[in-house]
Design a protein around this nucleic acid. Structure first.
Length: 195
DNA sequence: CGCCAGATTGACT
DNA sequence: GTCAATCTGGCGG
């Protein structure tokens, strides 16, 4: 996807990412997965955003679009892509993918788990696709760094389900999690009641 | 350098 | 269902 794809409201970009193919080249092989679950995050006005904590991540959320923003939490790596309209702030968290290419390699990275558990969760998919801090800050609109997003399946509006974001302690009033209805690779947890 | 909170996961009372 | 392991990033000293 070209860089301009990521210039838009984070929630809108999050929806557009559903069905796209996340591609990682690992040891010369293509690992890929169809994106089936995303969440949108905003700037400091968003209580769940890393931007609120300041520092480098905040600068990146307010910075150039289309770059991978990867940070660690609970010993996992979380993959986001910076996405927002010009001179605003935001990012999209990739929460789950459906394995497409390189499933065997992916299984090794995750040590023989059920297929369904390989990539259905933000920490799971980064591990399964060997995505870590080395890719932090790299653009995903070129194939130059071994991580990018390709066009994929067309998803119609009625296949998209929305809910509140998962795991956040304080959410915004509007639902910002988007996933493909009925897809078995969507992470299972139910979103907590919002405040 | 030590402290704390957390966009999670998986093991277990 | 509950719960703690374990690590990153920000911040204070």
């Amino acid at each position: 996807m070209p860089k301009e794809f990521y210039r838009g409201d984070p929630a809108r970009v999050a929806v557009k990412l559903l069905g796209k193919l996340l591609v990682r080249v690992y040891r010369g092989k293509r690992l890929s997965g169809k994106i089936v679950e995303t969440e949108a995050y905003y700037g400091i006005e968003d209580p769940a955003s890393r931007a609120r904590r300041g520092g480098n991540l905040a600068r990146m959320i307010y910075g150039d679009v289309g770059v991978a923003l990867i940070y660690g939490v609970h010993r996992q790596w979380l993959l986001n892509v910076v996405a927002h309209p010009s001179s605003e702030a935001g990012a999209v968290l990739i929460r789950a993918v459906e394995p497409v290419e390189g499933v065997e390699t992916t299984k090794k990275l995750r040590r023989a788990l059920e297929l369904q558990l390989l990539t259905s969760g933000p920490g799971r998919l980064t591990r399964a696709m060997a995505i870590d801090k080395k890719l932090h800050g790299k653009p995903v609109y070129t194939t130059a760094h071994g991580l990018w997003i390709e066009d994929g399946e067309e998803i119609s509006e009625r296949q998209v389900a929305v809910s509140h974001r998962i795991g956040v302690t304080e959410d915004l009033p509007m639902p910002l999690r988007f996933y493909i209805k009925g897809n078995p690779f969507v992470s299972r947890k139910t979103p907590p009641a919002r405040l």
